[in-house]
Design a protein around this nucleic acid. Structure first.
Length: 274
DNA sequence: ATGTCCCAGTCTCTGGGA
């Protein structure tokens, strides 16, 4: 079985690249993030029409966020979001278009389903913006709720994969220059502790092999020629429970998908299981 | 080089988010 996770940065803008990549790579299960499309407008028909056998589950709200699962090994017990998932309350005075403060509904950041005997989660963690922002506090709250939800799921579904854009680099080796990130999100001790708390549930970080160079980075900013200079980060992760981690036969970052015309700023992570 | 890309709305530009 081949699993993959990919932050596509708009599934509509990326559709030609996504269809091409699916046909070339033939993953059995794919978690997508930052689809940036309402669930009803997700291009499910285009993916199904590839003839590769994909079923689609999409969770989206429109302009921001959005996650999806594609599977050709079954797609059962689909769940959108998770119990206790917080919504973003905003900074004091920040204009938000949704409900009143205190009634904020969760954003589209999680979708899960049973795929070929594995409980698969596609996750898009909040960015956090800056460590002193309300968005950073929201990020940590979201992680705490996610940990509780995954703990509950693991007792019922011991074969589980939580993959996606975690918006945290687990170690200093996972950013191109730790000095540049001092004082920034994605590397702070509380964010890294949030990942450690997930691993403490028994989840294993399936570290992929880079296609080129020493670093298995998965994200490179569009700006400043970051990709050709390999100024990247490893923030797209695959966390696997022991029954799945024991089946891992290989994992790689598909940096070819970051090249060429109109790429996402993230590369897919591909994991092969026995 | 703060050097890019994507989205919706204010709609052939702008502002927000990443």
């Amino acid at each position: 079985m081949r699993l993959a996770t990919w932050n596509v940065n708009s599934v509509k803008a990326r559709l030609p690249r996504l269809l091409e990549w699916l046909a070339e790579t033939e993953p059995d299960v794919v978690g997508l993030q930052e689809t940036k499309v309402a669930a009803g407008a997700f291009p499910a028909a285009e993916i199904e029409d590839l003839g590769l056998g994909y079923e689609v589950a999409a969770h989206g709200e429109g302009r921001w966020n959005g996650v999806a699962l594609l599977s050709r090994v079954g797609l059962e017990r689909v769940s959108l979001g998770f119990a206790g998932e917080p919504g973003y309350e905003g900074e004091p005075g920040e204009s938000l278009l949704l409900d009143e403060p205190g009634l904020r509904r969760p954003e589209a950041r999680a979708v899960a389903a049973d795929c070929g005997g594995i409980r698969v989660w596609s996750l898009y963690a909040p960015n956090g913006r800056t460590p002193d922002s309300a968005h950073y506090a929201y990020k940590l709250e979201w992680y705490a709720a996610l940990r509780a939800a995954l703990a509950a799921e693991l007792s019922a579904s011991p074969a589980l994969v939580a993959c996606g854009d975690f918006n945290v680099a687990p170690t200093d080796a996972d950013v191109w220059d730790p000095a540049v990130f001092v004082g920034s999100t994605h590397v702070t001790p509380p964010e890294r502790q949030a990942l450690a708390d997930l691993r403490a549930l028994g989840l294993e970080d399936v570290v992929p092999v880079p296609m080129k160079g020493p670093h298995p980075f998965t994200y490179w900013d569009y700006r400043a020629g970051a990709f050709p200079k390999d100024m990247g980060m490893r923030i797209d992760l695959v966390y696997a429970s022991p029954p799945v981690a024991g089946r891992v036969r290989g994992a790689y970052v598909d940096r070819e998908a970051r090249k060429g015309h109109a790429p996402s700023d993230h590369a897919p992570v591909v994991v092969d299981l026995s």
